[in-house]
Amino acid sequence: MTQQAAAPEAPAGLAVRVRDLHYAVNGRTILAGVDLDVRRRSVTAIMGPSGTGKTTLLRLLTGQLRPTRGQVEVDGQDLSRLSRTGLFALRRRMGMLFQQGALLTDLDVYENVAFPLREHTRLPERLLRHVVLTKLQAVGLRGAWRLTPAELSGGMARRVALARAIVMDPRLLIYDEPFVGLDPVSLGVVLRLIRRLNDALGLTSIVVSHDVREITAVADHCCLLSGGRIIAAGPPRALQASDSAEVRQFVRGEPDGPVPFHYPAPDYAVQAAAVR
């Protein structure tokens, strides 16, 4: 894809480094030994079927959850050694786009984007306005500055949240399922924005998604998460050409295969007979 070819060469160094990451909740293992490297200034896709722990992995990368075992380094800093203040300082250099945008419902579009600036800086109102309008212009929603979140469509809300995520000029931008529930036009807009913002602002982007076609078109590097582990990693083409049955099933969207169509269940006759 031409957009991908235009991406700048990633300099040496890792923005995120994950080693032997384990996470379990209520005795149920979600992640079982994840290793992940995210190169600076690249777009890295984390793919996988629903319920494999993609969002959990993101929450571990951002310090919202503490791992059961293993190490997460962001920007060279080990998250487990950071205090809450240190974690907050690190998060000022990160932006995150939540699945449904997570806009603050009591503020309008302009104030939502201005929120991090008002909380962390003492910019004069004129300069703050300039910064906010610039970011809204970048996502094509400068004209919607006075709308409330309730008046926005799903795609618009996602774009406003994106403007808010980049307003502090982060170095790492994380997208959690950015394409869910979007119409084809909004999806195309968000897809283009991910690549354009990454290249124009020199960011590192991590995109969690299960929309294979969309994400492989925009990512430099893809990882496939399944069964709590990363079972394949590499450039999108390498994943598409993979001869692993599990990877093939996911990439081609086959309903049955190594990932079974049916949720584990007892024998049908036994279950049917056990009427109380």
């Binding site: 919202q64 907050f88 300082a89 699945q99």
Partner: peptide, 14 residues
Amino acid sequence: ATDQLAAMEMMAVD
């Protein structure tokens, strides 16, 4: 429920 509190945490706002 709508992740607004989590979003604040991610914006380094307590």
